[in-house]
Amino acid sequence: MGHAFSANARPSARWQFADRRRRQAVLRALALLVLCAGALVIVSPIIWMLSASFEHMTQVLSFPPTILPSPWDFSAYRRGFTFMPFARYFWNSFFIGAMSSVGGVFSASMAGYAFARLRSPDSNVLFIVMLSALMLPYTVTMIPQYVLFKHLHWINTFLPLWVPAWFGGGAFFIFLFRQFFLTIPNDVFEAARIDGCSYFGLYWRILLPLSKPVLATAAIFHFQFAWSDFLGPLIYINSGSKYTVSLALSLFQARYGATPWNQLLAVSLVAMLPPVLLFFIGQRYVLSGIVVTQK
């Protein structure tokens, strides 16, 4: 902390200052201690899960629980993935996640561009209408959407799970894009306009290349939402080959009878990997994306 004390500060003030700095150092060390303990509590379930996935069932069920597997046993992964065709389910989830991610990023950034940069008499009204959708519980639209997709013969296909993302991509993301686009200086656009750039060119050649962080954030969030979604697949998917990872995981226990915890935890752990890895890859962007929406 840079405290700017004037040169003619009285000696007592300087003593006070040194005292405060010492106190602050102690405070910071204490905070670090508390935070590390807290972090340990937060990660311990995941560590425990990791070790259990490498254990025999007898060791998983033993009490007190043990941290280190002995012996190391990798069969839970193999057996978990063959008991139900999880490779297939991972592909299904990837497909839905990727499709809704691409569609969501394009349609939401287009709408965000319109709200941030293009003027129209009805733009304020439409913006408020758009935001009002944020308050709407998903259950209000769930049933008519189901009826709609049933009429379209989309039940038991992936279409209801990713097509809506191509048409708007969610009010939250439109808002996210708009907020980010507003931070780009106006001069950039005016200069491009004078050079004869069209409105579409502004979007495609100026705005999108300047907005990589927020594009990455939205793509990651979209993928995570689609990957984690449970209610959607639960309602729309009913044939085994089309299950998503979340849906299959929820059925794993019931299918098995007595729960094979090591296998269930092994598969759950792999199911956590894509969103977690994606977060680590784009961490810088994602955290700044969260901040942008606050302004």
Partner: peptide, 8 residues
């Protein structure tokens, strides 16, 4: 993902 978290 909530399902994986709930199982854990």
């Amino acid at each position: 993902p909530p399902v994986a978290g709930a199982l854990l």
